[in-house]
Amino acid sequence: MGIRRAAQYATFAGAALMVSAGTALAAAAEATALPEDAVVGGYVPMKPTEGKGMPTPGAIGFQEQFSPIGEYGQWMHNAVLMPIITAISLLVLLLLLWVVVRYRTKANPKPSRTSHNTLIEVVWTLLPVLVLLGIAVPSMRLLASQYETAPEGALTVKVTGYQWYWGYTYPDYGGFEVISNMLPEDEALANGEPTQLAVDKRMVVPAGVPIRIQTIGADVIHSFAVPSLWFKLDAVPGRLNEKVMFIEEPGVYYGQCMELCGARHGFMPIAVEALPRDKFEQWVLEQPGGTLGEPAMTDVNMPVQEPESAVPGAAGAPRPDSALEEDVDAAEPAPTAA
């Protein structure tokens, strides 16, 4: 058992090293090396690339980033914060070791009575201030860039968090909603996807353009998070949040719900599939109710695809019978029954 495990981890660690060594160049190469899945005229879910857009076994750092904000954030963490915090921790450790050795009773039998030194007290108050100011500069830049608004004509995807699945609505393409549930383990493995992260229907978006992501919660608070895109935004009921997502290259990027939302909080993963624009549009046309026409709908009587979020009791995850639904129904002010 122990040996098997150790061997397994050794391979994990090797893979981790390889991936962390991978540069953007290597990533680009991987992207082009993607198997050409799309049959002419039909959308076929993209095969994920090992180590791209998903956690790496045994990794000790961030997932490789595929957005400008992510790259900047990762740079700030790896090049600014990590050296500083490592240096501080080591400094404290070295000082501790030094006093332990130098001022042990044997080495220094007579304690000094020094309990003040204004100069040094001022220095160790001001030095951290300077270090923090140094951190604040890239930090504020990163923050500001995260609040840049979407440009004209940006694609809007509305992400609705349900207990316990995600809905992706495309209001500019006919307003259809894609309901996304976690795949069971066997199906995920059969598809060559990581378990606990694979979903039946992905959020498909074009690569290389800014996307306006809007999140809202249908029942409780959820959080839409994709680590390899440095993206996290809470989905709060009764309140629409918005943030720009930019994916540099085609690929599958996995994420998970990151705000405790009830029993299956750990079982509503996110898979974002970025495609070239034309492939994306092809996908849109294959969705029921998907159109590429003018987004603004002025005719009231035009039959529209009702977003799932507007349908009470949306059929989402195939929930096994559980006490929950009865409880929820019973807790609600009884509508017609009672």
Partner: peptide, 17 residues
């Protein structure tokens, strides 16, 4: 840093080590 969320009873095998 690798992306594992809090408050999860289960996870993808990449987090096992």
């Amino acid at each position: 840093m690798n992306g594992m969320p809090r408050r999860y009873p289960d996870y993808t095998p990449a987090f096992e080590l």
